[in-house]
Simulated assay, not measured.
Amino acid sequence: MQTIEVRPAVQREPAHPSIDRKQISDLVETFYQHIRTNDRLGPVFEARIAGDWGPHLDKMKGFWASVLLKTGEYKGKPVPAHFRMKEVVTDDFRIWLDLFRATALEVFDDPEAAAIVIRQAEKIATSLWMAMLATPFDKAPNFLFGEAGAGR
């Protein structure tokens, strides 16, 4: 008889111990409130969402729970969804990140947690920018890297 080795499940550690679902919900709700009132990004999002923000907010809460709490619940494909948005330009990423950074600093009491959340957003924005707007030899704009990216 053959013995089958069973490995223990991989432990998924949150990005920071102080981050919880309430903070993620607050992050998403507050961030998208800022997006809605932004002169440039508000219309871009509204054109796609058409007033029905609930499903998008739920999807983003699942996305950020997957990123920050390592839940694995988000099953979407963000690159193809964003790739179709031909009206998006490089400066939109700067606006998005400025709003996101300010929101993260507002929502997360722990500065270390806020910094981790912001760094994750910068990585995501960089990946999306590269997929949507870059050519093979383009260098990502410095604003995608925040303070840590100065001099890149």
Rank of each mutant, 00 (worst) to 15 (best):
M1N: 02
I4M: 04
V6N: 02
P8Q: 04
A9E: 11
Q11A: 07
E13A: 09
P14H: 10
P14G: 13
A15L: 15
A15D: 09
H16E: 08
P17Y: 00
K22G: 04
S25W: 10
D26A: 10
L27P: 10
L27Y: 07
L27C: 09
V28M: 01
T30M: 06
F31Y: 05
F31R: 00
F31N: 00
Y32H: 07
Y32E: 01
Q33R: 13
Q33H: 11
H34G: 00
H34F: 00
T37L: 08
L41C: 15
F45R: 14
I49G: 01
G51D: 07
G54A: 12
P55T: 04
K59C: 06
K61S: 11
K61I: 14
G62R: 06
G62V: 03
S66M: 11
V67H: 00
L68P: 07
L69D: 08
L69I: 03
K70V: 05
K70N: 10
K70C: 06
G72A: 12
E73G: 15
E73Q: 15
Y74Q: 09
K75E: 02
K75Q: 12
P78H: 07
P78Y: 03
F83S: 11
K86M: 15
K86Y: 15
E87T: 15
E87Q: 15
D92M: 08
I95F: 04
L97W: 02
L99V: 04
L99Y: 01
R101D: 15
T103I: 08
E112F: 02
A115L: 05
I118H: 01
R119S: 14
E122D: 14
E122W: 12
K123G: 11
K123T: 13
S127P: 05
S127T: 13
A131L: 12
L133K: 13
L133R: 13
A134M: 10
A134Q: 07
A134G: 05
T135K: 15
T135H: 13
P136E: 12
P136K: 13
K139W: 02
A140N: 04
A140C: 06
